[in-house]
Design a protein around this nucleic acid. Sequence first.
DNA 1: GGGGGATGAGGAAGGCGGACCTTGCGACCG
DNA 2: CGGTCGCAAGGTCCGCCTTCCTCATCCCCC
Lengths: 90, 90
Amino acid sequence: MRKADLATEIYEKVGVSKKEAADLVELVLDTIKGILQKGESFKIAGFGNFVVRSKGPRKGRNPRTGEEIGITPRRVVTFRPSQIFKKYVN
Amino acid sequence: MRKADLATEIYEKVGVSKKEAADLVELVLDTIKGILQKGESFKIAGFGNFVVRSKGPRKGRNPRTGEEIGITPRRVVTFRPSQIFKKYVN
DNA sequence: GGGGGATGAGGAAGGCGGACCTTGCGACCG
DNA sequence: CGGTCGCAAGGTCCGCCTTCCTCATCCCCC
C-alpha cells in the first residue's frame, strides 16, 4: 500500500478525479510533515498522536565493520496509536 | 496542535473553506485509519511508513495494585519516520 | 458560536521485550 | 532518472503495557 493507492481509495470514496485525490493527499501529508518538522506534536482523536521526542546520545556501530560509533542526540517523531487500534488484535 | 489546527493550516494554504479543509483532513486520515485497521502497512516516501507489527504475549501489571497480569498478543501500528526527519536534530 | 454531554486520552510503577541505530549499496518508488 | 528506502548484526536503552480516574477534546444542536 503506497501513497498512490491511498489516492485511489479516496478517489473511490469521493467524487473527485484521481489527480485531485492525489493532490489533497499530498497536501494533508505535507502539512502534517511541516508541523512535525517544526518540532510540534500533533494529536488526532480517534487516530493517534504524533509526538516529537528528544533522544539522548547512544552507541551504535558500523554494520559492516562492527566498529563502535557514537550516535548523536536528536529529535525523533514517534506515533502513539489511538486505543481503537487495540481492537484489531487478530 | 490538533486536528482543527491542521484544518486551519490547510485552509490557509489552499482556497477552500474551513469546513472543506476539515472534511478532507478527516477523509484522508480516516482512509489511512481504515487501511491500517485492515492490518496493511502503508508507505509514504518522504514522510514515513506505518507498519503493522505483531507483538507476542508479555507480562504487564496493574499500575494500582502492582499485580502481574498477562498481556495478550496483538497487532500494533508503528510509525517509522522517513530519513528526512533526521535533519531536524535541533 | 457556545454550551453540554460523551467519548477519548494521559498518567502512574516497574520490568522486560524489542525497536533503534550505525554505513553503504542495490532496488525501487515517484 | 533521481532520490529515498531497506537491509545487514548486535547491543543498549527506551518505551511499551497493565487499570482506572480525571480532564480535555470533540461533536452536536440550538
